[in-house]
């Protein structure tokens, strides 16, 4: 299952501060969409509003519509908890639950839903999820060891396994490789390519080569200056963004002539 995401006239606020202004975009299902742009342009803020994680911060709120296969996740009466079970998230720094074993980490989402799993069911979920996260062979002999004992790259793949174990429709990734070495980064990028077959993947990245490597579509965000809201400047096929951008600022940014 994967769902498309439509953003309609979205404004994102921190208290009175408008952080992201007037975003309209249609994000395809079963594709990888990359958000790029300079620091502070609101990419992460927008990403976090896609699964209602933005509002966890005090004073943070959102205006506009965000449609998940046509259903507005910001409509009154929608439970953010339900939204988050359908829109999973992988964070900048790997964050496996430190007190849980590798196995428990993968099953954490099921535990939350209160699902009663038989031993064989949970074994199967653990194995499939870890396999799809390309981690199974590395950890299959130590499933009962703490997740925090793994390397950074392995921890991040464990977090991805934890996210896909509950079979979300959309996976959000907030600079998932920024804390990792090149080899682990490559492993995650390969994985993103595979995830795309089953999920809608949206990834924020500072690494333009990464955006070019993994995504089909790219959105470029920018701010006019400090304290101004971030805006969506250009959104197109990744090849067009990197080769024939329509906007001057996009061209400057992707060619490294920024600022």
């Amino acid at each position: 299952m994967s769902k498309r995401v439509d953003v309609v006239d979205l404004n994102v606020y921190y208290g009175d501060f408008l952080a992201v202004e007037g975003v309209n975009m249609n994000i395809d299902a079963q594709a990888v969409t990359a958000f790029i742009g300079p620091s502070g342009c609101g990419k992460t803020t927008l990403l976090r509003s896609l699964n209602r994680m933005h509002e966890v911060l005090p004073g943070a709120r959102v205006k506009g519509q965000l449609l998940l296969d046509g259903e507005d996740i910001y409509e009154s009466g929608v439970d953010p908890v339900t939204v988050r079970t359908q829109v999973g998230m992988v964070f900048q720094r790997p964050n496996p639950f430190p007190t849980m074993t590798i196995r428990e980490n993968v099953l954490a989402g099921y535990k939350l839903n209160g699902a009663r799993l038989s031993k064989s069911q949970s074994e199967e979920i653990v194995e499939t999820s870890l396999r799809s996260a390309n981690l199974w062979n590395e950890v299959k002999d130590r499933l009962d060891r703490p997740g925090s004992g793994l390397s950074g790259g392995q921890q991040q793949r464990l977090c991805i396994a934890r996210t896909i174990a509950v079979k979300p429709d959309v996976i959000l990734m907030d600079e998932p490789c920024s804390a990792l070495d090149p080899i682990s980064t490559l492993a995650i990028e390969d994985l993103i390519g595979e995830l795309q077959q089953d999920y809608t993947v949206i990834i924020v990245t500072h690494n333009m080569q990464q955006a070019a490597r993994v995504s089909q579509k790219t959105a470029f965000f920018n701010i006019a200056g400090t304290g101004k809201p971030g805006k969506l400047i250009e959104y197109d096929d990744t090849t067009s963004i990197f080769n024939t951008p329509q906007e001057k600022s996009t061209e400057d940014y992707v060619s490294g002539r920024f600022g």
């Binding site: 988050r84 999973g88 939350l112």
Partner: peptide
């Protein structure tokens, strides 16, 4: 309690109480 751990629980669809059980209590034990 690290925000990172709290958000890990919330992003998996934890309610506030579940988040506390999953990340705050183990950290604070």
């Amino acid at each position: 309690t690290p925000k990172l751990h709290e958000e890990a629980a919330l992003a998996l669809g934890a309610t506030r109480w579940e988040m506390i059980k999953m990340s705050v209590f183990p950290f604070a034990r």
